[in-house]
């Protein structure tokens, strides 16, 4: 699974860092920063949950072919 985050949409709620700390962090400005772009297993599940919790719809997941 490929993950992208749109910093221009981000409102810095921190929900993604709380839900998927292995995938997301916040930069010094409080906006989202990706730790890793391609995911599998638990990180992918957590990232999917983080995307659904994001209040600003700033997280995008796309399935990736092997």
């Amino acid at each position: 699974m490929r993950i992208t985050a749109d910093r221009s949409r981000c409102v810095g709620s921190g929900n993604c860092v709380r839900t998927a700390p292995g995938v997301f962090d916040q930069a010094d400005d409080g906006l989202v920063r990706l730790v890793g772009g391609t995911l599998s297993g638990e990180d992918a599940r957590n990232a999917a949950e983080a995307a659904s919790l994001c209040p600003a719809a700033a997280i995008f997941l796309t399935p990736q072919e092997d």
Partner: peptide, 9 residues
């Protein structure tokens, strides 16, 4: 955005 940095998780 002015307030955000100090309220990051």
């Amino acid at each position: 955005r002015a307030m955000l940095p100090s309220l990051a998780l």
